[in-house]
């Protein structure tokens, strides 16, 4: 994998440079002079049957990048994303992937082609679809606003913090801002 990974990484970086556009992901702290929007925690959710309760941000990133294919129990990891345009997706791209949409697409195209990426993300059009998908697939992992979470899915800790805990990094602009 090491031999293949380096050229691909270079390719990806080149693509990123060629795209030339900075990430449009919303930031927790807005531009200077503008009012700070209300934020809401973005929960990372898995199937209720999943034994994993906590992940480090690094592990989470590896999972989201598709670099980790299975859970500790051997179950295949299925990554669930929302369609482009959702603020939740933008937060995930900026705070987990550190990529924009193009980089994200290129990452997976390249990764799947080279075999570096084991998981192709499933894209759903609504948070409800995400929730139901995760409910149906034992190895699924995705993200939802804290207000969209219900008992059908399990919220896991990121760096030992739950959504709402102080220092929890993943925050999405609240719907009230609209």
């Amino acid at each position: 994998m090491g031999r293949l990974a380096n050229p691909l990484l270079v390719f990806s970086l080149a693509g990123l440079l060629l795209a030339g556009s900075p990430s449009k992901a919303p930031s927790a702290a807005g531009p200077p002079g503008q009012p700070v929007p209300n934020l809401e925690p973005l929960a990372i959710v898995v199937n209720q049957a999943n034994a994993v309760d906590s992940l480090s941000m690094a592990d989470l990133r590896r999972i989201f990048l598709g670099e980790r294919g299975h859970w500790p129990n051997g179950r295949r990891i299925t990554l669930v994303m929302l369609d482009p345009g959702w603020p939740e997706r933008a937060v995930v791209l900026s705070d987990i992937y550190h990529m924009d949409e193009t980089e994200f697409k290129n990452h997976f195209l390249h990764g799947l082609f080279t075999g570096e990426v084991f998981v192709s993300p499933k894209t759903l059009s609504t948070p409800e679809g995400v929730r139901k998908f995760i409910f149906n697939v034992p190895g699924a992992i995705g993200y939802l606003r804290a207000s969209d979470v219900d008992k059908s899915v399990k919220v896991i800790r990121i760096d030992e913090r739950l959504p709402g805990d102080k220092g929890y990094k993943l925050q999405v602009p609240s719907r009230e801002n609209k």
Partner: peptide, 12 residues
């Protein structure tokens, strides 16, 4: 059925 559904949703 749950396993079959999970496999389908996973894409397998």
């Amino acid at each position: 059925r749950d396993e079959v559904l999970a496999s389908i949703l996973e894409g397998s």
